[in-house]
């Protein structure tokens, strides 16, 4: 008899914008970032590093920059497999996506805490 096991990994929407989306996978304990034409997997450490490097970019400074350098930023994260090469507009969009995601994760954390305190 042939048994086929289908592992359905369930992704939960964390946050979505018109530019992209971030999903959480509980079984793998990670997040999938759908942005800039690819879906990339991030664990906890890497997601925090991504947030840090995106928040770190001085968008205002880049906008005021009148040199002829191309307006692209390369986001490379140590020990992560992914790298992004993004325009300024994309960086703003990614920042918005990450900000929303972390608000939702915070909210989820608060809900879990409240539920725990009610349950006990």
């Amino acid at each position: 008899m042939i048994t086929t096991t289908t592992t359905t990994t369930h992704w939960t929407d964390v946050f979505k914008t018109s530019a992209g989306a971030i999903y959480q996978c509980d079984t793998e304990r990670c997040w999938y970032v759908d942005f800039g034409g690819k879906v990339a997997k991030f664990d906890y450490r890497c997601l925090l590093k991504l947030r840090k490097s995106v928040y770190h970019i001085d968008i205002e400074q880049a906008l005021l920059n009148t040199t002829k350098d191309p307006d692209v930023e390369i986001i490379f994260i140590c020990a992560c497999d992914h790298c992004y090469v993004l325009s300024l507009l994309q960086i703003i969009a990614l920042k918005e996506l990450l900000e929303g995601t972390f608000v939702m994760l915070e909210l989820n954390h608060i809900l879990h805490e409240r539920l725990c305190s009610i349950a006990s």
Partner: peptide, 14 residues
């Protein structure tokens, strides 16, 4: 949805 932030760390980012 699991609270992955809490699973990984006891203290908040702040």
């Amino acid at each position: 949805m699991k609270d992955l932030l809490r699973i990984k760390s006891l203290i908040s980012t702040e």
